[in-house]
């Protein structure tokens, strides 16, 4: 009885918050058939938004993968002063609102600041352009790869790495031949999570990008802008694309997760 009533409560909760809203978005996108959806998704503005999202996501995930593995190795394999602080800082992006992250970046790199002007003088624009959007996305995703990889590094221990060293393998050879294969599953899981998070980022991007249509507009910004301009077809259609991509990413992460983390 308890089990059944709990089940009803949880299902109702999920239905109210997740299933019904998403279904309605899908319904509104497709209620005039597939033709208008394709049309809405192939306008120059929509295509450009997808392209910007792809570029920002690619660099953000790349940076987070490298940074995440290096940081996890540092945290698990080495002892150094300030380790506990670094460990706590890694989780900061989970607690700080992305909008604040965006504002902070504008304060540091905006045109009105010394740093921003100096960079602009040598032709590097951070704010209102792709680099700033990548930095904002990287910041928001920082914990994801580190927290996926670190427990697995902890679990496998360093004996295999020491064994490789006694057999003559240098640091890079040991990493590539021993450590990387051992964390492969966890790393893929973290990367997929970072990918899904990057695709959906809105708050930090909204502040940093300046929402310049046709220049710095990502898909999430595009959805918001189209919705406010009463082009609901385009808003719903691109929202569905984001949802489907995220679901596929999460399904992939599900498939990767059990091997490393559940065992």
């Amino acid at each position: 009885m308890v089990k059944n009533s709990l089940r009803v409560v949880v299902l109702a909760y999920l239905a109210m918050l997740l299933v019904i809203p998403v279904s309605i978005v899908v319904y509104h996108a497709f209620n005039a058939g597939i033709g208008p959806v394709i049309d809405a998704l192939t306008t120059p503005a929509a295509l450009h938004a997808f392209q910007i999202t792809a570029v920002v996501t690619f660099y953000a995930v790349l940076a987070n993968t490298v940074f995440g593995v290096v940081t996890a190795l540092l945290l698990v394999r080495y002892r150094f002063p300030g380790k506990r602080i670094l460990n706590a800082l890694i989780d900061l992006p989970l607690a700080v609102s992305p909008v604040i992250v965006g504002l902070a970046l504008v304060l540091v790199y905006g045109r009105t600041t010394g740093t921003g002007r100096a960079l602009a003088d040598v032709g590097i624009n951070i704010i209102f352009s792709i680099p700033g959007m990548v930095i904002a996305t990287v910041f928001v995703c920082i914990p994801l790869v580190v927290r996926a990889v670190a427990p697995v590094l902890e679990e496998i221990g360093d004996e295999q790495e020491q064994a490789a060293a006694t057999l003559g393998a240098g640091g890079w050879q040991t990493f590539r031949r021993i450590t990387l294969p051992a964390i492969r599953g966890a790393l893929a899981y973290g990367v997929v999570l970072a990918l899904a998070r990057s695709l959906g980022e809105y708050g930090a991007i909204a502040v940093v990008s300046g929402r310049l249509v046709g220049r710095t507009q990502t898909v999430t910004l595009f959805v918001q802008e189209r919705y406010q301009n009463f082009d609901q077809r385009a808003a719903y259609a691109s929202a569905v694309v984001l949802v489907v991509t995220a679901i596929v990413a999460l399904l992939i992460s599900r498939a990767l997760r059990p091997k490393e983390l559940v065992r």
Partner: peptide
């Protein structure tokens, strides 16, 4: 360690 020419066997096999 790489250049000492030692073979090392660990308790938990590694």
């Amino acid at each position: 360690v790489q250049e000492r020419g030692v073979g090392f066997v660990f308790q938990h096999y590694a």
